[in-house]
Structures are given as C-alpha cells and as structure tokens.
Simulated assay, not measured.
Amino acid sequence: MSIEKSVAADEYHSKDFDWEDLRRDIESDPSFSFHLSPFLQSSSPSSDSQAWSHFHSRHSTGKFFKERRYLLKEFPDLLSCDDYSKVLEVGCGNGSTVLPILRAKEKTSVYACDCSVEALERAMQNIADADIENVIYRYHQFCCDFSVAQFPKWLACDLCRTKRVEKSLPYYTCIKYEVNESEGTLTSSPPNKDGRCCLGGVDFLTLIFTLSAVSPERMMTAVRECFSVLKPGGLLLFRDYGLYDMTMLRFEPEKRVGFRHYMRADGTLSYFFDLVCARDLFVGVGFIELELEYCCVKSVNRRKGKSMRRVWVHGKFQKPS
C-alpha cells in the first residue's frame, strides 16, 4: 500500500525545521483553511484492494518506488536483532522495505503481505532479481488486507495470540487444547509430529506508509491485529505521513473525504497523522511507546527552484513481555 518516494538516507529522521513553526505557518494561511475545518460526513469511503491493484498495475515496472535504504538507519533494531529473527512487513508493495532487510541480515526470515496480488508479483520479481543468497528460504509472502481480515493462523494461532503457550516448550511450540464436554476435562496435545502448528508470531512488524491507506474507522482494528501476531517483547516499527506534510497541502478541497483524510484521483486513500493520533492508536491496543516524533525534512525541487517541507511520523512500539 506504500506510495512514498525515498530520498537519500542521510536526509531521513532529521530536523531540518521545527514542526511547530510549520503548524503556525499553515494555520495562519487562509488558503489552507479548508484543511482545518470540521468535516461533517459521518463515515469516510473505504479504499479496497481493487484500487491498489490498479495502482500497482499502472506502475508495473516498479520504478515508482525506490529501495528504502534508510530503513536500517532509522530502525537499527533490525540490524542488531538475534539470528533467525522473524520480520513481518505489512503492506509490502513492490518489496522496497523487505529488500534492505534481506540484504543486511543473512539469517533473518521475512514474511510480507499486501492486499494487492499485483504488488506481490512485483515484489517477488524484484527480490528474485536482487540475487540475494538463500532468499528463497528466507522470504515468504501472502495476500492479506489486515484492516478487514485476520492474519493467517499459520503465522500465529489463536492460542499464541492469547498467550496460551506451554512454557516448558520452545517459544514456537503451541499446544492444541481440546475440551471433553462429557467428562468436563481439558486436555492438550501437540497438533503435529514436531509439535508446531504455527510460527508462534514474529519478532518485528514493520508498518511503513501503510496505515495511512486504511480508513480511520478501521485503523484501531488493524493495529490490534498487528499487536496479536507479535511475540511478547516484539517491536512494531512505524513510519507514515505526518500532519501538514507537503502532500496533504497539495490536495484540493474536493479530494477531502474526512478529517485529515483524502482520496487521490486513482481511488486510493491517504490519512495524515499527528503524534496524538498515532499514540492513541498504538498505546490504545496495548503497545508501549518507545519512540514517537515528527521527521521534518526540507527537500528542494531543483528544476522548479522550490523548497518543500516533508513531514513523516516515526514511531517504535513494543508489545509488553
């Protein structure tokens, strides 16, 4: 679901300007007043997978995206993680986020999902073209819209999601519980010969320019689903569009479909977060906030000679141990 263009890694997560200064400039400019006014529509439209499928079909060459090489610099936990860690990338698009992880960590397994089959096909091709060692054994993708459906049970079964895991067994070994109603007893047995019925969850979950494509009324459900498949102590790494980003200010009034919520000409949606909104979403489902701040980057369009102020929200959240 990601549509953000990457820039040089050293420009990311910087403080080229103060967000409060930007806020004052925007809120004092009458030409931007329609962005700030209340929105009376009761519910915003849903951006379904079809719109994103059309988007990825139009950009089938993959040149619209660049590999997010800044990712490991902004989230160094991905570099310092234990061998054989498991990462889930939600809304993988054409693979621009998973590629730097696969390159840097030879023993890390990456699971990636997207609501668009076309995006997954492009991601698989890009990763195959990257010629990364043993990638066929470390990269696994599947189609899923996490805002309307659960992640598959093989990723984390119901027992793992509710922490009903036998402590004497390895973390990935979950127990199948069965109730004998006639005898009123609860028995347990391993579901397979090796005792495994699922992966037991993941160590990291990356949510990079994905949540903004989800309708606001479904965001809390989507974040709760992310929480459920993380192992205790696992990290969710978040980056998305921030309030008063240049992209938001370019939208015309008729493109506004909700509060801080806009629809592009192709039918895909984009929401713009402030820190309070992001905090409420993640802390509200049980995450612990470790990092949350605006990333303010000033970029220059040399051809037009214009300076542009970009705003993203950067966050790191942990599932309690």
Rank of each mutant, 00 (worst) to 15 (best):
W154D: 03
F146M: 12
R122H: 05
T206F: 08
G305R: 11
F272V: 08
P152V: 07
L155C: 05
S60G: 13
E20D: 15
D131T: 05
W154V: 04
L120S: 00
R218V: 06
K73C: 07
D18A: 14
C296G: 10
C174I: 05
P100V: 13
D245P: 03
K231D: 07
R69E: 15
S14P: 02
F272P: 01
D48M: 02
S189Q: 12
S215R: 15
D114Q: 05
K107A: 11
S189H: 13
R161L: 03
L78K: 00
Q41C: 07
L207K: 04
R303I: 07
M219I: 06
S116T: 01
Y139A: 04
C296L: 09
V179H: 15
F55I: 06
D10Y: 11
L230R: 02
L292S: 09
L36V: 12
P320F: 04
Y271D: 01
E166V: 14
A222R: 03
E183T: 15
A51S: 14
V135T: 07
I101V: 15
W312S: 15
D145G: 01
L243W: 13
G95E: 01
Q125V: 09
F209C: 07
D21A: 13
K306F: 05
D203R: 00
V7M: 11
L186W: 01
A213D: 09
F317L: 01
V98Q: 01
H54V: 02
H56A: 00
A278D: 03
R138D: 11
Q141G: 02
S33D: 03
D274M: 11
Y244P: 08
S321L: 07
S321T: 12
A104H: 14
F259S: 12
R164M: 10
S80W: 12
M246I: 09
F64A: 03
G93L: 00
N192H: 12
D194F: 06
I136F: 01
Q141R: 00
T247F: 08
S44I: 03
C144F: 00
Y294T: 09
E252L: 13
L205N: 02
E118I: 00
V110S: 01
K86L: 15
F209W: 09
D240H: 10
C226E: 06
M220F: 06
K231V: 15
L205E: 02
R23H: 14
D245H: 10
D82P: 08
C143G: 02
T108C: 09
H140S: 09
C174V: 10
G195T: 11
T268M: 04
K255E: 15
